[in-house]
């Protein structure tokens, strides 16, 4: 800081004695060089830091997982060769309108040169693109890798009268419309799971959207709602205050090995509501950039330190490559409209 001040002082002395025109010329060139450094054209991608847009606020699960997942992007091996992407990654948050703001910006305005990626949340963004007039959909975005999968779990308060899914469904059958189920918001995985359960069990239960997963969990803990769908990772952490009745996935999860799936409990609910998180680029990005990212991004996710941090923060991981993610997106794009049809009217 001291040095900087000193140079500034010297600069000022010099500038005061020089002519105005000379000064502005100098200034112009220095600004231009600055611009040139940050705006240089891409050749031999990647040659400068890469951004990741997160459509939610800082501190949320998607945000901090994105930060951990991209932690080792600039890692080099012993010979100084990049292990994965080879450039540092920074995170930019563009929250608003339940993620729509950020993804709209990404699909329409983000640079298509591979220097701006975005984190996706499936099924959330696909469901939104079906229900609303959005600028994004599965066709104008290209996935490059998946780092996590967080299934929705059905939870009730610690003192709840329900101990199994069957208790809850029986009660709902006897008292239609009397069961309230909280979730993180409209059209997120929790909402999808809620719709699937209501359909599979043939019951009338009410969905109460919260302001994010934390708020939805609070409603369950405080007893304001009778049940809730929430993130498996958050529920596993809050084991003391709640009871976890079932997992909305095809298999049991290692975090909660004792909790049965909804299928085991007798309700035909698949993994449509599982919250997949990963990275994508907008369509129109050069194919060589996409293939470079598709190759390096999963390697980055599988880094030892990253995986350790993920484990430490209780974040369920699932690394998938571009082709697997593409198949998963296509499957969701087919199954979700059917589920959401009743809501659309």
């Amino acid at each position: 800081m001291y040095q900087l001040r000193k140079t500034c002082q010297r600069k000022r002395m010099y500038q005061l004695t020089s002519k105005l025109s000379k000064l502005s010329l100098m200034l112009g060139t220095s600004l231009l060089t600055l611009a040139a450094v940050t705006n240089a054209n891409a050749e031999g991608y990647p040659e400068r830091p890469i951004g990741v847009m997160v459509a939610y606020g800082p501190g949320g699960a998607t945000d901090f997982q994105a930060r951990i997942a991209t932690l080792s992007s600039a890692l080099e091996d012993k010979e100084g060769k990049p292990v994965s992407i080879g450039q540092p990654i920074y995170v930019t948050n563009k929250p608003g309108a339940g993620g729509r703001k950020g993804w709209n910006w990404f699909a329409s305005k983000a640079p298509k040169d591979g220097y701006m990626l975005a984190a996706y949340n499936v099924p959330h963004f696909i469901a939104q693109s079906i229900m609303f007039d959005t600028k994004y959909n599965v066709d104008n975005l290209e996935p490059v890798g998946n780092w996590g999968a967080d299934p929705a779990v059905l939870i009730v308060g610690k003192d709840s009268e329900f101990n199994t899914v069957k208790d809850l469904v029986d009660f709902a059958k006897a008292n239609p419309g009397k069961i309230t189920v909280s979730g993180a918001g409209k059209f997120v995985g929790h909402h999808i799971a809620h719709l699937q359960l209501a359909k599979a069990a043939g019951i009338d239960i009410k969905y109460v959207p919260g302001k994010g997963g934390v708020d939805a969990l609070k409603l369950v803990k405080g007893g304001q709602v009778k049940a809730g769908f929430n993130n498996l990772s958050d529920a596993a952490r809050a084991k003391g205050d709640i009871k976890v009745l079932a997992v909305a996935d095809n298999e049991r999860h290692t975090f909660l090995p004792d909790v049965p799936t909804l299928k085991e409990s007798g309700f035909d609910v698949d993994d449509s509501s599982v919250n997949f998180r990963g990275l994508m680029v907008p369509k129109g990005t050069p194919p060589e950039v996409i293939s470079y990212l598709a190759k390096t991004v999963p390697t980055m996710f599988n880094d030892k330190k990253t995986q350790g941090k993920m484990k430490q923060t209780n974040s369920p991981v699932k690394t998938m490559n571009r082709d697997e993610v593409k198949a998963m997106w296509a499957a969701r794009a087919k199954s979700l409209p059917v589920l959401l049809n009743d809501l659309k009217k």
Partner: peptide, 17 residues
């Protein structure tokens, strides 16, 4: 006023830096 102008330019530059 040129002298003040230069001063303002310097202040603006420092502020932006």
């Amino acid at each position: 006023n040129r002298k003040r102008g230069i001063f303002k330019l310097v202040v603006s530059t420092i502020f932006m830096i």
